[in-house]
Design a binder for these strands. Structure first.
Lengths: 196, 196
DNA sequence: CCTACCGATCGGTAGG
DNA sequence: CCTACCGATCGGTAGG
């Protein structure tokens, strides 16, 4: 029975319980740490306790694996952010909640973390289109959040949103778990980006 | 005569005039566009009109080539920024001048652009240490600029500097030459980061 | 899930 | 600067 069959019947698909789920989680961590090109199928296999070739029983290709992880990560992030945003009314509070939720997902070393939403340069061109499309949809959430802000006239909202998103994405490049929590950083970013 | 000999005698070393200078410029563009791993020596050779192996007459290794480009790019950026900053007195104006100067260098598709100061994850570990050390020295410039700012008490200067630098570095990931100039973007970043 | 292998590509070198 | 090549590694596959 193929995965799609299982999904159609509503069975559990790839929880951390299934072997496939374990492999996905391991691959996500490696991609997040070492990038797409820096992670070989043999690396993933080794971390999972099998040879690289054996992974192809669970996945179709390295490309497909990466795309699946990317989409799953954005799905998870979207849901997490939507829930956090819904609890706030003030536009600035909603934005800060979204930032905190995004950073919580993105800086969590466990779970399906974001396999670097940014290193599209590292990925084969055939894959890039799918990633860009999914990311654009993700970023629409922030367009709405920014549109609701009472920004001063001299700030261009579209560029402002661009700056905020790239700011959030770049945190993973320098963040090291320690004195600052994801929430701390989100609070500081919200302060810097707050203008009224 | 080796390169070091030429430098010691004060002769021209690697201007765009010399063959070596051409190759460095070509390599810098490729590294900036496709990343360290995404650029093969054969790619560089092809762009320079020779076979990959022939490059080793001019350089010692791919690693050494990348480190040299990285250092040269930061040297150039430092000089450009220092000159721009020196023309301003007000701390905020000095910061904006630094941002504009950095982006001018970083977004210039010609010349020895920054071969992605950020994708250290893509570079072999043996090279990383040298890059990090040089970058840390570079960033000290911004530490001083930020220290001179009359920031509100609720903003942590060290985190603020971190955010500003990663903001500036990430522009190259999404910038496309068009309606906005590097100066436009610097002006907007300066506005967002201005708090008094 | 392993053995054993494929064709492609990589950084780099010897020798001219 | 080229020819011709090295050993290593890559994504992926057949067959069990």
């Amino acid at each position: 029975m193929s995965r799609t069959d299982a999904q159609a019947k509503g069975e559990e698909t790839d929880g951390a319980g299934t072997r496939r789920g374990q492999i996905l989680a391991i691959a996500a961590q490696l991609f997040a740490r070492k990038g797409y090109r820096g992670t070989s199928m043999r690396d993933i296999g080794e971390a999972a306790g099998v040879l690289g070739g054996s992974l192809y029983h669970h996945i179709k290709s390295k490309d497909a694996l990466f795309v699946e992880l990317h989409h799953a990560a954005l799905d998870g992030a979207e849901a997490h952010i939507a829930k956090a945003v819904a609890q706030e009314c003030d536009p600035w509070a909603r934005l800060e909640a979204a930032c905190a939720a995004l950073l919580e997902v993105q800086l969590d070393p466990d779970s399906l973390t974001m396999p670097m939403m940014n290193d599209f340069r590292e990925v084969p061109e055939s894959v890039r289109a799918a990633l860009v499309e999914r990311r654009d949809r993700f970023e629409r959430m922030f367009r709405d959040l920014v549109a609701a802000l009472p920004l001063p006239a001299e700030i261009d909202p579209s560029l402002y949103r661009n700056l905020l998103l790239s700011q959030l994405n770049s945190v993973a490049d320098w963040y090291r778990p320690g004195r600052l929590t994801p929430r701390d950083i989100a609070a500081q970013i919200a302060r810097v980006f707050r203008h009224d």
